[in-house]
């Protein structure tokens, strides 16, 4: 599957095409021109073509208000699209919702539970709503998922008394109640402290390691970069870019970054070594490393008397890729 990238200015162009292989059974989620126009005329999601390969950890990225949650609500059948169609786990929707949803664990727009019930009772309640779930194994399954998210000790405590992080973890536990082929997680780390965020990330990796496709929305680029194999970027209700993270970045040359008080001199040395794009900014000199062995660059710098405080070789971060693509920063607060 090819990374498909369109910049902000390409809205009038054709939507990012789906690679042929991605349009059939090997996708957990496919949308074709999915559109939601609310009654006020506001278009929340516009002609969306998503392709989420099975087994992928797909980061659904975009600022708040870019249509991520509306898209997720449409995927799960909570909101009816006004245009286009979609497939979940190979089944055409919305006709196949009842058949597909038992295989989907979903966290949509934060946790929601019955405040007067305990954590365990809340999970039993949602499990009872799933017609494919076996009531005889419910207690064992609930205990297992509570253990998995580290809430065993609070299983009997009322939800009302849960902290924000516990609530989020309970919601994640609910998504793991049955055997899932797909997890849809809408901002799963919202409200979590750094430790909780790391736990969620580890959990996502665990689940993905078991073969489950994970579709995770976030407004935090760094988070997506750390968890995901694929990424789709929403901007104003449209898909601005989509593809495997590695491919999105592949076109970008690895950069050498030298942290030094002699940035200008370092840049000169790098240029002398034949590296392109050598430049100095503040206490940092940057250049494309190309085929040059990094150790040679480092040795040359030291030989030239540059005080090297730090030396890294890295492909540009996703953020830099997007800045390059769209000519603007990924400013999530707007």
């Amino acid at each position: 599957m090819n990374a498909t990238l369109t910049g902000e200015g390409a809205h009038e162009a054709a939507p990012p095409p789906l690679a042929p292989a991605a349009s059939t059974g090997d996708c957990a989620i496919v949308t074709r021109g999915l559109t939601k126009r609310f009654r006020g005329g506001q278009v929340a999601v516009d002609d969306l073509h998503l392709a989420v390969p099975r087994g992928a950890v797909y980061g659904f990225l975009g600022p708040n208000g870019s249509g991520k949650t509306t898209t997720i609500r449409m995927l799960l059948g909570l909101v009816a699209p006004t245009g286009g169609g979609w497939e979940l786990l190979g089944r055409p929707m919305p006709a196949g919702l009842a058949a597909a949803l038992p295989g989907v664990g979903a966290l949509v727009e934060g946790p929601a539970f019955y405040p007067y019930l305990s954590g365990a009772a809340n999970l039993l309640r949602y499990d009872a709503a799933d017609p494919t779930a076996d009531g005889r194994t419910a207690r064992a399954r609930v205990a297992a998922v509570l253990d998995r998210v580290g809430l065993s000790a609070a299983a009997g405590k009322r939800y009302r008394a849960y902290s924000l992080g516990m609530r989020q973890r309970l919601a994640i536990a609910a998504t793991l109640l049955g055997p899932r082929e797909l997890l849809v997680l809408d901002e799963p780390t919202n409200g979590l402290d750094p430790q909780g965020t790391r736990e969620v990330r580890a959990l996502v990796k665990q689940v993905a390691a078991g073969g489950t496709t994970v579709f995770v929305s976030s407004h935090l680029l760094a988070e997506v970069e750390q968890m995901c194999t694929h990424v789709g970027v929403m901007r104003g209700g449209r898909l601005a870019a989509q593809g495997p993270i590695a491919e999105l970045r592949a076109g970008r040359a690895p950069l050498v970054r030298v942290l030094t008080p002699d940035a200008a001199r370092a840049a000169a040395v790098l240029e002398r070594l034949g590296l392109s794009g050598a430049r100095a900014a503040g206490e940092e000199a940057v250049a494309e490393i190309g085929d040059l062995p990094p150790e040679r660059a480092c040795a040359e710098l030291v030989d030239a008397g540059v005080a090297v405080r730090g030396f890294t070789v890295a492909r540009p971060s996703l953020e830099e890729v997007f800045v390059g693509l769209t000519g603007e920063g990924f400013d999530v607060e707007n």
Binding site: G103, T132, P179, R180
Partner: peptide, 17 residues
């Protein structure tokens, strides 16, 4: 904890009861 039910994509789709 090996007691975890398999959350992976496996087996036949669960039948509705």
């Amino acid at each position: 904890g090996g007691a975890m039910p398999d959350a992976g994509a496996s087996g036949a789709p669960a039948r509705a009861r």
